[in-house]
């Protein structure tokens, strides 16, 4: 990347793998689990968080020298809440059906720990450009996990991806269903999200031994 220095590039790529917000930093789990039954909802959630975290990090970073530290949490919450209201209104205007399915979970981006966590840990101590990169990097790292979980849950649970029947038609028995494949309805239930994330963590940590916890 010619545009970015090595350090700046690391800000974007680190959260992608070895410092992933969900699997390593344990932030932002709530929304990651609740809305991943469909791939489309996961993608919309990932994009919303990308928007809120990218812009929010810049705003907080610009204000970092004038926020009194005692009330910084309230200030941060107000900034996030404003951004989330924008997201919510945009979704209601252009994707009404989807905004109904996501329901309260768009509002819950406000208390998504990723956002507060990055504000506290990064934006309050760094300049706007770096904060922007950090925000984008973390939001992408979050989005990747969301999309992986959404992909598997929708594929195995209802045999579709983004609503397209990729495995054939379960009623007319075409495609995979003609040889006796069945959808696993269990994948659509909420608890399976936890187990899928658990398995992702397992795979990631077996590939990178340094991440293993000592209990």
């Amino acid at each position: 990347m010619g545009l970015l220095s090595k350090k700046d590039a690391a800000l974007i790529t680190d959260p992608f793998a070895d410092n992933n917000p969900i699997t390593i930093q344990v932030l932002g789990i709530c929304s990651a689990l609740a809305i991943t039954a469909e791939l489309k909802a996961s993608i919309v959630m990932a994009v919303s968080v990308l928007f809120v975290l990218g812009i929010g990090n810049v705003v907080i970073s610009l204000m970092r020298n004038i926020i009194p530290s005692k009330i910084r949490i309230i200030v941060q919450l107000i900034v996030v809440a404003t951004l989330v209201i924008i997201v919510d209104l945009v979704l209601k205007a252009f994707q009404y059906e989807l905004s109904k399915t996501l329901g309260a979970f768009i509002g819950l981006i406000i208390t998504n720990c990723i956002i507060m966590g990055r504000f506290e840990a990064f934006a309050l101590a760094n300049g706007p450009w770096k904060s922007f990169l950090d925000g984008i990097g973390n939001a992408v790292g979050y989005g990747v996990i969301l999309i992986i979980v959404g992909f598997f849950r929708e594929l195995l649970g209802s045999g579709t991806l983004l609503g397209f029947k990729v495995l054939g038609d379960p009623i007319e028995k075409t495609g995979l269903y003609s040889i006796g494949y069945e959808n696993n309805g269990f994948m659509l239930l909420a608890p399976m999200a936890l187990i899928v994330v658990g398995i992702i963590i397992w795979i990631q940590r077996s590939r990178n031994e340094a991440l293993i916890e000592d209990n």
């Binding site: 239930l189 608890p191 209990n215």
Partner: peptide, 27 residues
């Protein structure tokens, strides 16, 4: 802590899976 869990699953991983199982129970 006293059980023998595969090393990569220790800590966070097993907590996720246990929570998943508890959630199935609560259903």
């Amino acid at each position: 802590r006293y059980s023998n869990i595969p090393a990569p699953l220790r800590g966070l991983g097993i907590t996720f899976i246990v929570t998943g199982l508890m959630a199935i129970g609560f259903m």
